[in-house]
């Protein structure tokens, strides 16, 4: 069998560890309230990786600008010197910052005449969406030791689970606590943290959940063979 299939495995390999770096499976939503021109600078693994511009103006009908950091990063490498990526949104719209591919760790700085913002420190009003793919118990912790326990279980084939993949679970990071302080999640379901304060969060996988790998078991069952001679001796 021949295939040119290149699977985007980064979603399953990159494990988010905190809001200071954007990896695959993380999305930062930053609202741009003031009209103006915002210059975006992308850094990957501490190295400059690309630039973009967001024009925030009332004339625009766009409520969000999806900015794929991986795309800009790789386009910059491939087409050095090309025109920077440009987006337009209306005031109150969101800059949506994410990486669609690869395992790079990104930070983004957004500067305008009046603002200076970095994803390294999220602001009140920001949203951070996490796609936690690996089943297990996570702890999300804020600057003031606010904690939220996230119990992520394996996706099943039930219609409820499939439906749930299209619905996010929301928590609010407040000054003192997360609300709610614990949530249940299905692997691949979006967890959205609403920042009610400025700050960061750390994400720790406290305990990975053992998953029964039916696929592997199926293969093993198919090929397993025990020599009856030795089996007899063991018993």
């Amino acid at each position: 069998m021949k295939s040119n299939l290149q699977v985007n495995t980064s979603l399953f390999k990159a494990e988010p560890t905190g809001s200071n770096y954007l990896v695959s499976g993380m999305v930062v939503y930053h609202p741009l309230l003031e009209p103006g021109v915002y210059q975006g600078t992308i850094t990957k693994d501490e190295t400059a990786a690309g630039d973009f511009t967001i024009v925030c103006e009332s004339a625009s009908a766009e409520t969000q600008a999806n900015i794929d950091l991986y795309l800009i990063d790789t386009s910059l490498a491939a087409n050095a010197g090309q025109q920077p990526f440009s987006f337009t949104i209306r005031p109150g719209g969101y800059a949506v910052l994410y990486s669609s591919f690869g395992e790079g760790k990104y930070t983004v700085a957004l500067r305008s005449e009046k603002t200076d913002y970095s994803t390294a420190k999220l602001q009140k009003g920001d949203l951070l969406m996490l796609l936690l793919m690996k089943p297990g118990t996570y702890q999300v912790e804020g600057n003031n030791h606010q904690t939220c326990s996230v119990y992520t279980r394996e996706l099943t084939n039930s219609p409820e689970d499939i439906e749930a993949l299209n619905q996010t679970v929301n928590v609010v990071l407040g000054e003192q606590v997360f609300d709610p302080a614990e949530v249940n999640l299905i692997q691949g379901q979006g967890l959205v943290i609403h920042f009610d304060v400025n700050g960061e969060v750390n994400i720790d996988l406290i305990e990975a959940k053992a998953v029964q790998d039916s696929f592997v078991q199926e293969i093993r069952t198919k090929h397993a063979w025990e020599n009856p001679k030795y089996k007899y001796k063991q018993s």
Partner: peptide
């Protein structure tokens, strides 16, 4: 008012033979 971005699972235009 706000959506999650779409992320494609395969790069390029994949096929299998």
């Amino acid at each position: 008012a706000l959506r999650a971005p779409k992320i494609t699972l395969f790069a390029g235009n994949p096929d299998i033979s």
